[in-house]
Design a protein around this nucleic acid. Structure first.
Ligand SMILES: [Mn+2]
Ligand SMILES: [Mn+2]
Ligand SMILES: [Zn+2]
Ligand SMILES: [Zn+2]
Lengths: 140, 140
DNA sequence: ACTGATACTGATAATCACTCTCAGTTACGG
DNA sequence: CCGTAACTGAGAGTGATTATCAGTATCAGT
């Protein structure tokens, strides 16, 4: 049994995240780069600003950003890809031809009531990805 | 430059998939087991029927089954999990509490017309996963 | 029933994506 | 300033998946 606690509950976030040059470099590299990226690509770009940057720090920073919904792991695809995300509820349009990811606010998930009635399921969140051909690739 | 070809186009599927005892063992293990499973679990179960089965063959068979939509890699989660799927269009209700995956035919993706009008995007397919609490876990 | 082309197999090495460890460093509230 | 908890990089470690390759088995065509 663990020692009893006074503080509410052990949240596994640090009490306060520090602003370090390494984290800034990673965040900047994400801001400047394309919407979707692999960790290796990001690492390379971030190192241009912070050459001594370690790969572990990149992963640690990605985890922080994921918790604030600033990025999202890209589901489909051959694993190991992230997408920079705008705040707010949205979904992704993924081009099968060029790979670009576009955000859309269009959302038509099954209603909570329907899910509860038909399946006894209480939904909390959902993820929708649409695959197809983007405007640019359709033109070409 | 490659040698010119007479056959239509080099599809990357074999001309004809062979029915081997190893593949049967893997398929049987999937049929009999729970809807979602890891590769390691599947490997163990399939080996009870085909003890000399190699792990590589399991992966190769999973890939074949994925191409026919008989299984689907489970998006969320720490990778390395598959779900046995019924034929036909459907989506997944994933319980955050017990991890079970339930299928639903409920589907309300944005319409093709709306996607085209608002984003110039021509959808071909989509994937929807709903996270929440299943009936059983709600009861408990 | 043969048989040959080629799909398939298991063992094992190799790769990949990520995580852990730890000793030294740094940000920052007080 | 200072103290301390958070953070860092290097590199070892891990677990999952893929590649290699020499031997084997399936099955379409006879
Ligand atoms: Mn939505
Ligand atoms: Mn659907
Ligand atoms: Zn495109
Ligand atoms: Zn449940």
């Amino acid at each position: 049994m663990a020692h009893p606690r006074k503080t509410p509950d052990p949240v596994d976030l640090p009490q306060r995240a520090r602003l370090t040059p390494q984290r800034l470099a990673v965040v900047e590299a994400i801001r400047r780069g394309p919407r979707s990226f692999t960790v290796a690509e990001l690492y390379d770009r971030a190192r241009r600003q912070e050459p001594k940057l370690g790969l572990a720090t990149v992963y640690r920073t990605l985890e922080l950003l994921r918790r604030t919904d600033a990025i999202r792991p890209l589901a489909g695809s051959p694993r190991a890809e992230y997408v920079r995300c705008s705040p707010g509820h949205h979904h992704h349009l993924i081009c099968l031809s060029c790979g670009t990811v576009e955000e859309t606010e269009l959302c038509a998930a099954p209603s909570d009531a329907e899910l509860r009635r038909r399946h006894g399921f209480a939904p909390e969140s959902h993820e929708l990805d649409v695959y197809g051909t983007c405007a640019e690739c359709r033109a070409a």
